[in-house]
Simulated scan of single mutants.
Amino acid sequence: MKARVIRYYRFGEPGEVLCMEEKDVIPPGPGELAVRMYARPINPSDIIPVRGAYPHRTQLPAVPGFEGVGIVEAVGPGVSNQMLGRRVLPLKGENTWQDVVKTMERHTIIVPNDIDDQSASQLYINPITAWLICTEVLKLTYGDTLIVNAGGSAIGRIFAQISKIYGFKLIALTRDDRHTAELYRLGAVSVINTTRELLQERIAELTEGCSAEAAVDCIGGTDGEQLVSCLKPNGTVISVGLLSGITPLWHEVTRGTQVHVKLFWLKHWVERCSQQRWEQVFHEVMELVRAGRLVMANIGATYELTNVQQAIAAAESGIEGKVLLLQ
């Protein structure tokens, strides 16, 4: 049997380097299962590696896509036939911009029936990253202040909702006012439009001169670097993304500040954590989604896998909501 797969053999603009091919579907081996993908969101973290921002992390040729939801259509030896037809998130295996993804049964997360496909497809990258940063890395508690840039992004909105759940203060940084009202509704205590306000002065005002305990940088470049001046001594910046494509000069901007910088890469956490912890975190996040306390991004547009170029263009055009690649 043949299946479609999106690949790239060199780094560059997605429109130039991504190509659709066919591959032979090899039956799952011991402990493995094969998942027929239904829906995959397009995240910045899917596109940034294509452009070559992380060449040391990406082995070519590569398949984009880190998350999505699908149906188990085949199981290997040692996997119960009861898994057939189950809706799952196939993690820690092959990437998702293809028809069929193989992974180990222990690396799949079964999706409850009351979580729809659109939400399920987004349950991994942004929610788990934000959840772990707040609860495990920073251990934020009531009264702490967290600054997040790219506040209007999908992960920025997740941080806002988690702040309401845990009671810490979330200051969201944006470059326009499109998402201000929604960010307040989701849980942010303040929203700063950095094109109109001086960041350091505004943070000092909002924290009564005390500065913030921590910040999350999704952008990189000077946007990330300026977060350092907004933190207390021994404060922490968590670097999670490079929307700008520019790596901040952390060693220079933190010199003499006592501010710490930590890089958070979800793949590293997944590789290190125990099976018990893995399942516990997903259970906690999915229970919040089921209860309506954590809401994924609305869907702005959907495209077939064959129209991946148009889908990426839409995702990067500023369209409201997530763009999904279907079937």
Rank of each mutant, 00 (worst) to 15 (best):
Phe66Asn: 05
Gly78Trp: 12
Asp99Asn: 08
Asp99Arg: 06
Pro77Glu: 15
Ser80His: 10
Gly65Met: 08
Glu67Ser: 10
Arg106Val: 12
Glu67His: 08
Val79Asp: 00
His107Gln: 04
Gly85Phe: 07
Trp97His: 11
Thr58Phe: 02
Lys102Ser: 09
Arg87Val: 09
Glu73Met: 01
Lys102Gly: 03
Val50Leu: 02
Val75Glu: 04
Pro90Arg: 06
Thr58Ser: 08
Thr103Phe: 07
Val50Pro: 00
Gly68Met: 04
Arg106Tyr: 13
Trp97Phe: 11
Glu105Tyr: 09
Glu105Ile: 15
Pro55Gly: 13
Val88Cys: 02
Ala74Gln: 13
Glu94Cys: 13
Val75Phe: 06
Ser80Gln: 09
Val75Ala: 11
Gly65Gln: 03
Met83Leu: 13
Arg86Leu: 12
Tyr54Leu: 12
Ile71Tyr: 00
Pro90Gly: 10
Ile48Phe: 00
Glu94Arg: 06
Leu84Trp: 05
Gly52His: 09
Gly68Gln: 12
Arg57Tyr: 10
Arg86Glu: 12
Arg51Asp: 02
Trp97Val: 07
Arg87Met: 07
Ser80Glu: 04
Val72Gly: 00
His107Trp: 09
Ile71Gln: 00
Lys92Asp: 14
Gln59Ala: 09
Leu84Lys: 07
Thr58Tyr: 03
Met104Asp: 13
Pro64Glu: 13
Gly65Thr: 14
Gly70Lys: 05
Leu89Tyr: 10
Ala74Gly: 14
Ile48Arg: 04
Gly70Leu: 05
Val88Gly: 03
Val79Lys: 01
Gly65Asp: 11
Arg51Glu: 08
Gly65Trp: 10
Pro90Thr: 08
Leu89Arg: 11
Gln98Ile: 13
Glu105Phe: 10
Arg87Phe: 02
Met104Ile: 09
Ile71Cys: 00
Gly70Pro: 01
Leu60Tyr: 03
Gly52Arg: 05
Asn95Cys: 06
Arg86Pro: 07
Glu94Gly: 13
Gly93Gln: 12
Ala53Thr: 10
Pro77Gly: 08
Glu67Ile: 03
Glu67Thr: 11
Ala74His: 03
Trp97Asn: 07
Val63Ile: 15
Pro64Val: 15
Gly65Glu: 04
Val79Tyr: 00
Pro55Arg: 13
Leu60Pro: 02
Gln98Trp: 13
Leu60Val: 05
Asn95Tyr: 09
Pro49Gly: 06
Pro64Trp: 07
Val101Gln: 03
Pro61Asn: 11
Pro55Lys: 08
Pro61Val: 07
Gly76Trp: 04
Asn81Phe: 08
Ile71Glu: 00
Ala74Ile: 02
Glu73Thr: 11
Gln59Arg: 15
Met104Ala: 13
Gly85Lys: 07
